[in-house]
Simulated scan of single mutants.
Amino acid sequence: METEKTSEELVRGQAEIWQHMFSFADSMVLKCAVELRIADIIHSHDSAPITLSQIASCIGSPSPDIPYLTRIMRLLVRKNIFTVHHPSDGGESLYGLTHVSKWLLHGSDLSLAPMIVMENHPWTVAPWHCFSTCVKEGGTSAFEKAHGRNVWDFASQNPEFNNMFNDGMACTARIITRAIMTGYKGGFGCIESLVDVGGGTGTVVAEIVKSHPHIKATNFDLPHVIATAPLIDGVCHVGGDMFKEIPSADAVFMKGATNKAVTKDLIANKSTK
């Protein structure tokens, strides 16, 4: 009996290892859906379910591989990213959107598509392969092990990565800003000037100023990030290094600040001009 139990546990353990081994497939298929704009294609048909043939005809390829697309959609349906309906009359299956796939729409205020592309790009995935090297050698981050420089230096010398990274950060900033503006409606009333430290291309501070136009806002980030920031009414873009000095203001805004010591120092205005 004990032997049977041990055998079952071993088989269960093996199954779990296989699941972990191929868990990366979920994110890769998700990236594929974003790159092929499958959610956008279905959405363009008034969000009504459409056939695989209709999807294939809109992905921008003269000869799409239908069997391959079928397997991709099968996994996406299994993960509840899309729905599928098989007509009883034997007609083509119909694929539709879910509350999940709506986050894959390009151009939507609530879209995670740019972040999915960024997080699953070979440049961003490469550091994950360096964990064992980091443990053995230490000294630098996994990103530096993979690319020979930190993420900020890499972005400053690689415009494609810089734009992809900024787009990914901007899409999550929109989502966070909406939550902030909903739950902190009266919090900005007494502020006349605000500096967003590490504000990227200005997505967050732009929304704040739109709702509170009396605020004189500064978007502060590294020079190579600010170089790609669009003109925003009521916002001044300033490039620099937050660890050296930041523009002065009534309030400092930091989205996703995790270093308590740095945050405390900035709030105390010890590093401001």
Rank of each mutant, 00 (worst) to 15 (best):
L97G: 13
A173N: 15
T182R: 10
T133L: 10
V209D: 11
M115N: 03
S47T: 02
M21H: 10
V29I: 14
I17C: 15
F143V: 08
T3M: 00
D89Q: 09
T177H: 01
A257L: 02
T172G: 06
A146I: 11
S271K: 12
A39S: 01
S23L: 11
F143D: 01
G168W: 04
S61L: 11
S156A: 14
L52W: 00
T124I: 14
A229P: 09
H85A: 01
A206K: 02
H20A: 07
R71Y: 08
T172L: 12
D233F: 10
G139A: 06
I180D: 05
L104H: 13
M28C: 06
E119H: 06
A179K: 15
I175G: 05
E207C: 04
S27W: 02
S132N: 05
R149E: 10
I208A: 05
S7P: 06
V195I: 11
H147E: 01
F253W: 14
G240E: 15
H86C: 08
Q157A: 02
A39K: 01
L266W: 02
D221L: 15
A251P: 04
T140Q: 13
K210D: 03
I59N: 03
F165W: 08
H45W: 01
M164D: 04
P62R: 00
S271V: 12
H106A: 10
E35S: 10
K31I: 12
S88A: 09
G199K: 04
P114V: 05
M169L: 15
A39L: 00
I116L: 08
R37W: 04
T272D: 15
K216M: 13
P247A: 14
G187D: 11
K136S: 14
M115Q: 02
A217T: 13
A257K: 01
V34E: 12
G13K: 05
T83K: 13
A155W: 00
V151D: 05
C130A: 02
D233N: 15
E207S: 07
A33P: 00
V197H: 01
V151Y: 00
M254E: 05
E144N: 11
N80L: 10
G13M: 04
H224M: 09
P64A: 04
F82W: 13
R174M: 02
G202M: 11
P67M: 08
L266G: 08
G13P: 00
V204P: 14
T203G: 07
L104W: 10
H214G: 01
P49F: 09
M118A: 15
P127H: 06
S44Y: 00
S7M: 15
E35D: 07
I175D: 03
P114S: 01
M254F: 03
Q157Y: 03
V34F: 12
V197N: 11
V195Y: 04
E192K: 05
